[in-house]
Structure formats: structure tokens, C-alpha cells
Simulated assay, not measured.
Amino acid sequence: MNSNGVVYRCNKSCPIGKRCFILKTAVTLKEPITVWHKCVAKKEDIPVTIGGKPPP
């Protein structure tokens, strides 16, 4: 994969104002999927739904 691609970031409300990197793909995900992400602010795994639409 080259430097082009689709970057997905956390779309949850963040208490410290971050938009954490989740995943980079070569193409846009056509179907929404839920991934578990280690939240820096909450110090726990949170479910984040990505794909199905252009990333925020």
C-alpha cells in the first residue's frame, strides 16, 4: 500500500479533545464494522464503528 488511502479516526466524544487514529485502509470500507480501540483518555477498550460512509 502506498501513502494514499483512507484514514479512520475515533468518532466518539473525547474528554481530552483528541481524534485518535484507528485504521488506514487502501479503499473505503463499504460496510460498517465495529472495532475495539484502546481509548487514551478513558484507559479502556471502547467500540468504534467505522466504514459504510466517508470517514469524519
Rank of each mutant, 00 (worst) to 15 (best):
N2P: 09
N2R: 10
S3F: 04
N4Q: 02
N4R: 09
G5E: 04
G5I: 02
V6H: 00
V6K: 01
V7L: 07
V7G: 08
V7A: 06
V7N: 10
Y8K: 04
Y8V: 01
R9W: 09
N11W: 07
N11R: 15
P15E: 00
P15F: 00
P15C: 00
I16Q: 06
G17S: 10
K18M: 08
R19H: 14
R19M: 11
R19D: 08
C20T: 06
F21Q: 10
I22T: 13
I22R: 13
I22K: 05
L23C: 11
K24S: 07
K24R: 14
T25W: 02
A26F: 13
A26C: 15
V27P: 06
V27F: 13
V27R: 13
V27W: 14
T28C: 13
L29C: 03
L29N: 01
K30H: 05
K30I: 01
P32K: 13
P32I: 08
I33A: 14
T34Y: 10
V35Y: 14
K38H: 15
K38R: 15
V40M: 05
A41N: 09
A41I: 02
A41V: 01
K42F: 11
K42Q: 11
K42Y: 14
K43R: 06
K43N: 11
E44F: 03
E44S: 10
D45W: 03
D45E: 03
D45Q: 05
D45L: 05
I46E: 05
V48P: 04
T49S: 09
I50T: 08
I50A: 04
G51L: 04
G52I: 00
K53Y: 01
P55F: 08
P55K: 09
P55Y: 15
P55C: 13
